[in-house]
C-alpha cells in the first residue's frame, strides 16, 4: 500500500510540475466556470411572484404551484422588489377590490398572462384561457444537463490522459527499468498509476457540480458514476501511455481518443432513441446517459446500477482485448 501511495504522490507531484498536465487537469474547471454564465439559474426558468401578505395564505399557496413566491407586507417594498433587474410579477389588492398585477414593464411576454390566468383560476372564473398549464417533467434546462455531464465526462477522460502522460514520462526517462529492479510488483505499479485516474475525477466532479450550482442532485450517484467511468478513462490512459513513445505522439493518440469520446457523447445526446442501440458497445455512451439522468434528477439507483454494470462489463472486455499490449508496453 505504501508503494501505491508513493507512486500516486510522485505522479501527482510530477503532473503539477508539467504545464501540459496542469492544463489538462484544470481545463474542466475552467470550462465549468465558463459554462456557469450560460446556464440559466433555477429562478430564471420558473416564474417568480411577489405577493402582498394581506391577500392571504390561499393566494400564496395557489401561486406557489407555478413558481417561487416572496411575500411583502408593504406595497412600496413589493414595488421596489418588482423594480429589480430580474423578472418578478407583483400581485396586490386592486383598487376596486380583486387583484392587481404589478409589472416593471420589460418582463418576458407571457408573464402578465400567466398571472392573469392564475388569478382567474383563483376566482373560479371561466374566461377564455390565454395560457394553459402543462408539465413535461423538466426541472432544469438542457444546457445545464448536457453542459454539466459533458464537463464531468471531460474531467474523467482528461484525468485518464494524465496517467498516459505519466507513463510516457516513465518510458522516455527509462525509470520503468529502475523500478523494475526494486521489489515493486507490476500490479502495484498499475494500481499506483491508476489512483490519479480515480481521485482527480472525483474531486473535479464535485468542484464542477459546485461551480455549476448543481448541488441539489444526488451526489452519491455522481460519485458512483464518476468512479465507474474512471475505469475506462484509466484504460485509455494506459493505452495512450504504452502506445506513445513521446509526448507528441501521446497528444496525437489523445486526439484520436477524444474523437471516440465525443462521438459517443453526441450520439447519446442527439440520436433518436431507436438508433441509440448502435452505441451500446461504448462505455462512454453509458456514462453519458448516466450522468445526464443524474443531473436531470431522473436517475434511480436501479438505473444507475444498470448503467454501471454496462460500463464495468465493457471496460473489462476492453481491458482483456488490450491486456497484452499494456503489459508488454510497461516492460
Amino acid at each position: 500500500m505504501m508503494r501505491l501511495i508513493a507512486i500516486f504522490k510522485r505522479d501527482l507531484k510530477s503532473s503539477f510540475r508539467e504545464f501540459l498536465a496542469v492544463y489538462i487537469i484544470v481545463a474542466p474547471i475552467l470550462f465549468a466556470i465558463g459554462l456557469r454564465f450560460f446556464i440559466p439559474s433555477v429562478e430564471a426558468i420558473s416564474y417568480q411572484f411577489a405577493i402582498e401578505e394581506s391577500l392571504g395564505n390561499e393566494v400564496v399557496q395557489e401561486f406557489k404551484k407555478y413558481g417561487s413566491v416572496e411575500t411583502y407586507n408593504d406595497l412600496d417594498k413589493l414595488k421596489s422588489r418588482v423594480n429589480k433587474v430580474d423578472d418578478i410579477i407583483g400581485i396586490t389588492k386592486g383598487s376596486a377590490g380583486g387583484y392587481a398585477v404589478v409589472l416593471e414593464g420589460n418582463e418576458a411576454g407571457g408573464s402578465r398572462y400567466i398571472a392573469h390566468q392564475i388569478i382567474n383560476r383563483l376566482q373560479g372564473g371561466e374566461r377564455k384561457e390565454i395560457v394553459t398549464f402543462s408539465d413535461i417533467g423538466a426541472r432544469i434546462s438542457t444546457v445545464a444537463i448536457y453542459g454539466t455531464s459533458s464537463v464531468i465526462l471531460m474531467a474523467i477522460i482528461l484525468c485518464g490522459i494524465v496517467i498516459g502522460l505519466n507513463i510516457i514520462e516513465e518510458k522516455e526517462s527509462r525509470t520503468i527499468s529502475a523500478l523494475g529492479v526494486t521489489p515493486m510488483h507490476r500490479l502495484e505499479f498499475i494500481l499506483g498509476k491508476s489512483l490519479v485516474g480515480f481521485s482527480l475525477p472525483i474531486i473535479e466532479a464535485f468542484i464542477i457540480v459546485w461551480i455549476l450550482n448543481m448541488t441539489n442532485i444526488n451526489l452519491m450517484m455522481i460519485l458512483v458514476m464518476t468512479v465507474a467511468s474512471s475505469l475506462i478513462a484509466i484504460i485509455f490512459g494506459f493505452l495512450i501511455g504504452v502506445l506513445s513513445s513521446n509526448q507528441i505522439s501521446g497528444i496525437a493518440n489523445m486526439k484520436f481518443l477524444m474523437l471516440f469520446v465525443s462521438a459517443s457523447f453526441i450520439g447519446a445526446v442527439a440520436l433518436p432513441q431507436t438508433y441509440q442501440r448502435f452505441l451500446y458497445w461504448s462505455p462512454i455512451y453509458w456514462s453519458t446517459i448516466g450522468l445526464n439522468s443524474i443531473v436531470a434528477n431522473t436517475a434511480t439507483w436501479p438505473l444507475i446500477g444498470q448503467y454501471t454494470m454496462w460500463i464495468l462489463g465493457l471496460t473489462i472486455l476492453i481491458f482483456f482485448i488490450f491486456r497484452k499490449k499494456i503489459s508488454t508496453g510497461l516492460s
Binding site: K13, S14, R17, E169, S173, R174, T175, A178
Partner: peptide
C-alpha cells in the same frame, strides 16, 4: 544511462 525523474 541516467534514468531518473527529471521533474523531481
Amino acid at each position: 544511462r541516467a534514468n531518473v525523474y527529471k521533474k523531481l
